[in-house]
Amino acid sequence: MKIKAGIVGGAGYTGGEMLRLLINHPEVEIVFVHSNSNGGNLISDVHTDLLGDTDLRFTEELSPAIDVLFLCVGHGDAKKFLDANPIAAGIKIIDLSQDFRLTEAAGNKWVYGLPELNRERIKKADFIANPGCFATAIQLALLPLAAKGQLKGEVHINGTTGSSAAGQGLAATSHFSWRNNNLSVYKAFEHQHLHEIGQSLVQLDADFDGTLNFIPQRGDFTRGIFTAVYLDSELTAEEAQAVYEDYYGGHPFTKVSAKNIDLKQVVNTNKAIVHIEKHGGKLLILSMIDNLLKGASGQAVQNMNLMFGLDERQGLRLKASAF
Rank of each mutant, 00 (worst) to 15 (best):
M1W: 04
K2V: 09
A5Q: 03
A5K: 03
G6V: 11
I7F: 05
A11D: 02
Y13F: 13
G15R: 02
L21P: 01
L22K: 04
I30S: 08
V33S: 04
N38W: 13
N38L: 10
G40S: 10
I43G: 00
I43R: 04
T54S: 09
T54M: 03
L56T: 07
E61S: 14
A65T: 14
L69C: 10
C72S: 10
V73R: 05
G74C: 09
D77V: 14
D77P: 00
K80A: 09
F81G: 03
K92S: 03
L96K: 04
L96I: 09
S97H: 06
S97F: 05
S97Q: 05
Q98W: 13
W110Q: 14
Y112R: 12
E120K: 14
E120V: 08
K124I: 07
A125K: 11
A129I: 02
P131G: 04
G132A: 07
T136I: 01
T136K: 02
P144W: 02
L145R: 02
A147M: 03
K148W: 02
G149D: 00
L151G: 00
K152I: 12
G153L: 01
G153N: 02
E154A: 15
E154G: 10
N158E: 13
T161E: 05
Q168C: 11
G169E: 15
A172K: 13
A172N: 13
T173D: 13
S174F: 06
N180E: 12
N182P: 01
K187Y: 15
K187Q: 14
F189D: 13
H195D: 09
H195S: 11
E196C: 06
Q199R: 07
Q199P: 00
V202I: 11
A206C: 03
A206E: 01
D207W: 00
D209E: 14
N213E: 12
F214I: 10
R218V: 09
T222W: 11
T222E: 13
I225A: 06
T227W: 10
S233K: 09
E234N: 12
L235R: 04
A237L: 15
V243K: 08
E245T: 07
S257D: 04
I261R: 09
D262W: 15
L263G: 06
K264Y: 10
Q265A: 12
V267A: 08
T269W: 07
N270H: 09
K278Q: 05
H279N: 12
G281I: 11
M288K: 10
M288Q: 11
N291D: 07
L292P: 01
F308Q: 06
E312M: 08
L316D: 01
R317E: 14
S321H: 13
F323D: 12
